[in-house]
Write a protein that binds this DNA or RNA. Structure first.
Length: 203
DNA sequence: CCCGTGATTTAT
DNA sequence: TAAATCACGGGG
């Protein structure tokens, strides 16, 4: 039986956690008990109060981003562009608001249901290949914000691998979609994905 | 390329 | 109070 990742796994800096999550399995149980699951293949690190691209830059703390201030292992889901949701895993420690954005999954269970949630997807590699796509496929929204991935019955991350992926299997790039942020932060290499994996997002 | 769509943030 | 922004996706 695969084990759920425990609190100590998440209590690390966002960069370390972003890499350690690659290859692990995100699991979501639907209200009727079906498992929707996929391997995490792409992540981005958001470092906290000093990160100009983070929602918590300079200590911003509002009703929207409150969950980023929670202990590591909580799920931060936010709404953007009037129609999309994105999901993050809180890193570090309580009151240090750093997080890892989940950018893409390789779907492994419940593909037919995910397809129903994402009628526009034309192939399996389009199902979860983007932060808002994965939320739509798993039906994550603001109701899921604040979920404790270490203690919730219906959402958690399973340990697939004990050791993290070797560096040569991880591709490192600048984060996407943060052009408005200060250049120094825009160029930082904080996006990570499994090399050659066809389920990563396009850009 | 462009646009939808609306909460949140920032500027008056 | 008003305007701009936005960790995006889908369709030309």
């Amino acid at each position: 039986m695969p084990e759920r990742l425990p609190r100590r796994f998440f209590r690390r800096d966002a960069i370390t956690l972003a890499k350690a999550l690659l290859g692990q399995r995100l699991v979501r149980l639907t209200p009727d008990g079906q498992r929707l699951a996929g391997l995490i293949v792409e992540t981005e690190a958001y470092l906290g109060v000093e990160d100009a691209a983070a929602h918590t830059y300079r200590g911003r703390r509002t009703a929207r981003n409150e969950t980023m201030y929670a202990d590591a292992g909580y799920l931060y889901v936010y709404f953007t562009y009037g129609m999309h949701h994105c999901a993050n895993v809180v890193a570090s420690a309580e009151d240090d608001p750093a997080a890892v954005l989940l950018r893409a999954l390789e779907p492994t269970e419940g593909l037919a249901t995910m397809q129903q949630h994402r009628p526009a997807a034309r192939r399996d590699t389009d199902l979860c290949s983007g932060p808002a796509k994965l939320c739509a496929a798993l039906q994550l929204d603001r109701n899921d914000d604040g979920t404790d991935l270490c203690n919730s019955y219906d959402m958690f991350i399973e340990q697939v691998r004990q050791r993290r992926l070797p560096e040569h299997r991880i591709t490192t790039k600048p984060r996407v979609g943060i052009d408005a942020a200060e250049p120094a932060w825009r160029d930082q290499l904080l996006r990570f994905y499994i090399a050659e994996n066809p389920h990563v997002s396009k850009p």
